[in-house]
Design a binder for these strands. Structure first.
Lengths: 339, 339
DNA sequence: CTTGGCACTCCCAGGCGGTGAGTGCCAGGT
DNA sequence: ACCTGGCACTCACCGCCTGGGAGTGCCAAG
């Protein structure tokens, strides 16, 4: 049904269309790619490819453009991931190394991705639930006021101010600090509830009520709170592909502003070893049906802290994008693991 | 030169053009606004206004549109700030009160501004240099590794990891903590250098070298580091005013992606009591010459932590925008001051 | 100073024909 | 069975024109 030459034709169509953004006709195709056959033959192949739903043409007398299904086949079977040039690799490394803290790492990653791929970049903050406690600090702000500061091994910092039902002495606070510190230090956040389970019983009766209320907030901050942050950059790149968003890029921009939507986009790609590509209609998110998303998890190998990726028109350089996304994810993963 | 009626005509032109986004002609103007004169008279006034540079027309047989200078006059002398409805006020208050930490406050402010004004919103994080130290925590991560966590009264958290030249005991760290803590607690960040000046001399000789290296990092974090963060939202609103950015909104989006540019935009408006309006060409930033910026400082009254504002087409509802920006800034300022 | 009248300008939408790229199909060659 | 050249056909696109209409500028009269 789809012999090698037809696949070759599909590849040629995708490549030409991606680079010129214009429907590609049989003559041009036969000339520019050494297919060794005449335009007429190419036309036959095109007709076959169209029957199978891999390409369409916008109107009768226009050239062909790939469908989502066509891009899918291209990505799965016809394209080879473009490795980065060593100059690019060096640039990534040195740019990331300049980062002073986690915020900075994330910001720089977004920027890198956006520049390398010339698309919109999206980076999720290292997820709280998958990292572990580096330090939990309890500060006695006022007699009945505490400040909790949680620092994870990924460098993320969360803080909460807490009003207490009772007045505490500095000694009490020291006890609290000790109780939580010894149990949580180094623990993965998901394990926190288990580690703290026996705490109320083990503590002196005097501070129990306070302790439980502190514990509630701690657990809330650590585990329950599903708030995941996402940073976005390179939105200006969308305008370059104005051709690809005929209806205006309004809905795309709107979708990208919703944190929830972005999380949904990235949510499914947790595996650092596989780059996930969602093409056009495959995207569950309304409003991003005309875009493709290339994403990957990052972090220490089998697990992952979080995901990052890019969003662009379906007409994108998949080979290059996949390469860039993978490379940046690896460098960032290493950086965080080593820090 | 410019009698009252001419000013009235200008106001009418601005208002109509803002709401319809179409050049306004003499007939329509005379009908829709009770000016009590004929279109011909209006035409004469228009000609005068055009001579003075307050309006233009895109081509011979088109209606008039305001120039930057026209908008300026309108803002300065013809428009009255629109107070918010009490429903809006309540919405602002309750939405802001739900915030759990500083990040959340900033994110919510951006969102509020973007929704209220239907423009792009920009909020600067409370500036480090204008706030004071709530707590400085020094954590002994490893024998030769320290983590510094700085928390300001605005709720902002900065952290740095620090490799030491020598190995420290827990005791040493406790001494450090004590030394810095007693001197910095409650100090405004700008005063930090003064507070610490005598520190090396006062400290035990044994830890002096370490102490000075810690001090360097602390001062760097507190004062030198001019890194100011800015958060942006509502970019999708730009597309609604596509009419107003004929050349494509590319350059606008690009400009908005540059933190430095945003800081420059907001930088000049530090006074919480005056809303600053920059119209079109008045904007120093290349690429935002076709936009207007409405900004204001926020924070405890005469001083200010930082600024926030909106960016939109020059054809914007200035009265409404100024009202919204001012309102949100006040609520946020109160919230932070009271926290 | 205001007003009605009037000529003038020029954008805009719609209609029209030519051009050319591209297709689909067919009949003949290998 | 497959490739190829040929050929008719379809449309988008471009340039051109035309008529309508909104709006201006100016002038002379009130």
């Amino acid at each position: 049904m789809l012999d090698d030459r037809k696949l070759e034709v599909l590849r040629a169509i995708v490549e030409d269309f991606v680079s010129t953004s214009e429907p590609v006709g049989s003559r041009a195709l036969a000339e520019r790619h050494a297919l060794g056959v005449s335009p007429a033959t190419v036309r036959n192949d095109m007709a076959a490819l169209e029957d199978e739903g891999f390409i369409t043409h916008p109107h009768t007398s226009a050239g062909r453009i790939p469908t989502d299904k066509g891009y899918r086949l291209f990505v799965d079977r016809l394209s080879q991931v473009k490795p980065l040039s060593s100059a690019e690799k060096r640039a990534i490394q040195s740019f990331l190394e300049g980062a002073v803290d986690l915020d900075d790492v994330v910001r720089r990653s977004v920027r890198l991705l956006a520049q390398l791929t010339r698309q919109v970049a999206v980076v999720q903050y290292p997820s709280l639930s998958r990292s572990s406690v580096r330090h939990l600090e309890i500060v006695h702000l006022a007699p009945n006021r505490l400040l909790l500061v949680l620092i994870t091994d990924t460098g993320r910092v969360e803080q909460r101010v807490l009003e207490l039902p009772a007045v505490l002495s500095d000694d009490d606070v020291a006890q609290l600090r000790q109780a939580f510190g010894s149990r949580l230090h180094g623990a993965r956040l998901v394990d926190a509830p288990g580690r703290l389970a026996d705490l109320p019983d083990a503590a002196p009766v005097a501070i129990r009520p306070v302790l439980t209320s502190v514990m509630t907030v701690v657990l809330e901050t650590l585990v329950d709170q599903p708030e995941e942050r996402v940073v976005l950059g390179g939105a200006a790149n969308l305008t370059r592909s104005a051709v690809d968003f005929p209806n205006t890029l309004r809905p795309v921009l709107e979708a990208l502003e919703e944190q929830v939507v972005l999380l949904k986009l990235l949510g499914e790609s947790n595996d650092p070893s596989t780059v996930l590509v969602k093409i056009g209609e495959e995207n569950a998110v309304e409003g991003l049906r005309s875009t493709s998303v290339v994403s990957v998890g990052y972090g220490p190998e089998p697990a992952a802290y979080a995901s990052m990726g890019i969003v662009g028109p379906t007409r994108m350089d998949y080979a290059g994008s996949i390469g860039s996304v993978r490379a940046v994810a690896r460098y960032v993963g290493d950086l965080l693991a080593g820090a």
